[in-house]
Design a protein around this nucleic acid. Structure first.
Length: 204
DNA sequence: CTATAGATGCCCT
DNA sequence: GGGCATCTATAGC
């Protein structure tokens, strides 16, 4: 055999992503997001809801852009932010109701050389993936990934569990970069992780 | 370190 | 036209 030791990585259960989005969001922490050879550990997320969440893209119902948010749990919702950057979300909950977890930061795990190539502005590895737009550039996520099933092992982008559980006590703050519903404690981080973004919660 | 402007696309009023 | 779930370069302390 003489087989190289492989980290134990399995596809998480879809049930993990079903429930209230603010309860599901911290459960996604420490999972792996893999796009071809590039892998990042999710260390910062935010919960976004539907009609009940004024800060959400889905607050005023479905549009061409946000339609994936209304799909079933496990799909990847990718949108263009400020006309320039891509941002990636894990869709949660049940089909027909909008909710998704925005991935705000990952820690590089595999394919770091490729990430550096696609993030030439990052002078330090700490800046490679410490923001929602940055991590999409580093991992190579773009509009073509909108709607892919992250729980399908053959998909172009996949979610993986390598056995590291979410933090028992995640860092909880308000969401970053929003102007509505600023008070909700819907941002969750792995405490002390160097790749957590420098974004400050809105309304602070 | 903080503040600010500018790049740019899509959805809303 | 205005407002963004952003990032970067530049200016100033």
């Amino acid at each position: 055999m003489n087989r190289a030791v492989q980290p134990w990585r399995r596809t998480p259960s879809r049930d993990l992503l079903v429930g209230s989005v603010h309860e599901v969001a911290p459960r996604v922490l420490n999972l792996l997001l893999q796009v071809r050879g590039r892998v990042g550990r999710i260390v910062e997320v935010e919960a976004y809801g539907g009609a009940d969440d004024p800060a959400s893209h889905a607050a005023r119902g479905p549009t061409t852009r946000n339609s994936t948010m209304f799909a079933s749990a496990g799909l990847l919702y990718v949108y263009r932010s400020y006309g320039l950057h891509w941002c990636a979300n894990v869709v949660t909950g049940v089909e027909g109701e909008a909710s998704a977890v925005l991935v705000r930061a990952v820690e590089p795990v595999d394919g770091v050389e490729q990430m550096r190539r696609d993030r030439p502005r990052a002078r330090r590895d700490a800046d490679l993936t410490n923001g929602p737009g940055k991590l999409c550039a580093a991992l190579g996520i773009h509009a073509g990934h909108d709607g892919v099933d992250l729980l399908d092992p053959s998909a172009a982008a996949v979610l993986l569990d390598d056995g590291i559980p979410p933090p028992r006590r995640p860092e909880v703050t308000g969401r970053v970069g929003i102007s509505k519903a600023v008070g909700r404690p819907w941002r969750f981080c792995v405490p002390g992780n160097p790749w957590v973004s420098s974004g400050r919660p809105s309304g602070d």
